[in-house]
Design a protein around this nucleic acid. Sequence first.
DNA 1: TAATGTACTGAACATGCGTTCAGTACATGA
DNA 2: TCATGTACTGAACGCATGTTCAGTACATTA
Lengths: 205, 205
Amino acid sequence: MRSVHDDLTARAVIRDRALELFAAQGPDAVTVRRIAAAAGVSPGLVIHHFGSKEGLRAAVDEHVAGVFDGLFARASAGELDVADGASLAEAFLGQFPPGSPVPGYLRRLLLSGDAAGTEIFRHWFAASRAMTETLVARGLLAPGRDPEVRTAFLMVNDLVPLLLRDQLADVVGVDPLGPEGAVRWAEGVLDIYHGGLFGTEGELA
Amino acid sequence: MRSVHDDLTARAVIRDRALELFAAQGPDAVTVRRIAAAAGVSPGLVIHHFGSKEGLRAAVDEHVAGVFDGLFARASAGELDVADGASLAEAFLGQFPPGSPVPGYLRRLLLSGDAAGTEIFRHWFAASRAMTETLVARGLLAPGRDPEVRTAFLMVNDLVPLLLRDQLADVVGVDPLGPEGAVRWAEGVLDIYHGGLFGTEGELA
DNA sequence: TAATGTACTGAACATGCGTTCAGTACATGA
DNA sequence: TCATGTACTGAACGCATGTTCAGTACATTA
């Protein structure tokens, strides 16, 4: 028999397959039967372990939220190198292997308005706020007139390649989460952060 | 009997109620029976007019796409005053009465990856690209190293209050689509467009 | 006036859903 | 060795869904 905390239990397998399917198609579009089939178990077992489909969803939410709690903790402990003020997302997303369903699931969490997503969004905002305050204190960033809005703006710019990946890829012709697209996006954003919009040396402002 | 092009036909009523419900809860979460009840007709009539639920969804998509086609046409004809380079969304959204379901439906269209949403996204991007090129030609905007990415960046910043309305409201404490929030967001964005991030006069860059 | 066609209803149908449950297999503890 | 409990199956249940269809009402055309 497998131990309770062994992540190879059928329970964990069900949860992982559900995470993948939910990330790809959304929880409402995925049936208990399909999750069960993907996990190689019976539909009844899914309910046995999670009580209901909603319970499974909550378990997946909690699992993902836990992963990000860990990342936030590592970031604030300085174990994750957050290169500059706007790359929290890059630092986090770089932690997952290429095919990981977690970024896609995070996207759904953030856009759905779920409690778990709201929580992560708040956490993320607080971390971003702390970062900008540190940079301001060190004189690396101007104080800014509206710190709350500015932080939200920076955070959202950081998040947008994840949230609008497909649409941006379609329109600029390169995956903004891929190696090339990420670089181009980051450079484009930094150009504006540095020089503003109205001139490379500001002569037209 | 009402004429075919009278927007008070039962067909139009069904379409409008569907638009509202789809915008609020998403097409998958809304049943044909609920739409029928909201429109004051029988479920059978919904199918009679639109062939299927999917057909109704397509009709709503087409209707909304048509509305935005009209707005794009008016904008490029100069009938809509697009104050500065980044306020296409503001100009468009200002055209709808306060309780209109169209912005909410647009949000779903843009985020869902549907064909209709992709089409609007492309159209929007093309319009943004044309605008920035005009501004560059007039010397009001620096040329920029990566015009495609910069346009996408500006466009997305413009769109983000619509796409992340609830999350931003939760975190900054004011509805970014409301009167006060829109102003604060616009000012925050313009501050960065003007001065960049690293100093109000650029002295720290 | 009679014929035709369109708008519309309401009951019914098939399907697929989440969930239940009786029962099997098997590991653990007494 | 026996009792207990947990993991698990597979058939079944009840329900809500999208859709169908026979039938009614009524406007239009001839």
